[in-house]
Simulated assay, not measured.
Amino acid sequence: MKRDGRSALSIGRFINARKSTYDKRARIKQSRDEAAAKKAKYERLQKKLGEKIERDEGFDPEAYERRLAAIDNPDLAREAKGAKRGDDEDEDLDEDAKTRAAAAEDDEAPEEQLTVKGKKKKFDYLKKAWEKGQVERAEREAQRKVFLEEKAARDAELKAQRVKRQDKKQLMRKKTKRGQPVMKHRVQSILDKLQAEQMGS
């Protein structure tokens, strides 16, 4: 409410204007009520569903947690895979890992070779990816080298043009003792232009 200039502000209104309207206790009570409402809703839903949801017997929370950790941190997954391979080499990779490895591979995997003991040697996808990365890195280095050479040539050409322009400017600025421009440089510039036009035509 706007005050007119005639009446002064009362002391009560001045004190109340300085007070904060934020109430910490009310905010805590509101958050507790919201949490209790969510919990009650969840319990009602659980009661309503009853035994309809059956958990698969093959569900292993630890394995699921390991897979989530592997997605978040690939280094941990590699270490876990190495430990697992040491314990049991015959266990196969899970389906997701196989599909990811197959998608990352451009050409077909070579035929599995037999080891000394007669077991099939698994194809090393990590080694294949590392080799592919090395090839790409070498290509990038070659492209970078070519680019730097071209850039150096362009820079040298621009520098030569800049020096030539500066020299020409210095010649055009030359003056005689009386302050008149030196005409031989200007005439030479005109002759060069005419010769260039004749050569071009």
Rank of each mutant, 00 (worst) to 15 (best):
R6A: 08
A8G: 04
A8S: 11
L9R: 13
L9I: 01
S10P: 05
F14T: 10
I15L: 12
I15Q: 12
N16Q: 14
R18P: 00
S20A: 12
T21H: 07
K24H: 08
K24W: 03
K24M: 04
R27K: 09
K29N: 08
K29A: 15
S31D: 09
A35L: 14
A37L: 08
K41G: 04
Y42R: 13
Y42H: 07
Q46N: 06
K47E: 12
K47G: 03
K47F: 02
I53E: 02
Y64S: 06
Y64D: 08
E65F: 06
R67M: 09
L68Y: 02
A69N: 10
I71H: 07
N73H: 05
N73K: 10
D75F: 09
L76M: 07
A77W: 07
R78D: 07
A80Y: 03
G82Y: 05
G86I: 04
D88T: 12
D88Q: 07
D88P: 01
D88A: 08
E89V: 04
D90H: 06
L93I: 06
D94W: 02
D94K: 02
E95K: 09
A97M: 10
K98E: 13
T99P: 00
T99M: 12
T99F: 05
R100L: 13
A103N: 10
A104Q: 11
E105D: 06
D107R: 08
A109N: 05
A109G: 03
E112A: 13
Q113A: 15
K122R: 15
F123N: 14
K127G: 12
K128F: 09
E131K: 12
Q134D: 09
V135F: 02
E136K: 15
E136T: 05
A138E: 15
A138R: 15
E141D: 10
A142S: 06
Q143S: 05
Q143H: 05
V146W: 00
E149C: 00
E149R: 12
D155K: 14
A156R: 14
L158I: 09
A160L: 11
A160N: 07
Q161T: 03
R162E: 13
Q166M: 08
D167G: 06
D167C: 00
D167E: 13
M172T: 01
M172V: 01
R173A: 15
K175P: 00
T176S: 08
T176K: 13
R178C: 00
G179A: 03
P181C: 03
P181M: 02
V182L: 11
R186W: 09
V187I: 15
S189M: 05
S189C: 01
L191S: 07
L191V: 07
D192M: 07
K193P: 00
L194V: 12
Q195A: 11
A196S: 14
A196V: 01
Q198C: 03
G200F: 07
G200P: 00
S201I: 06
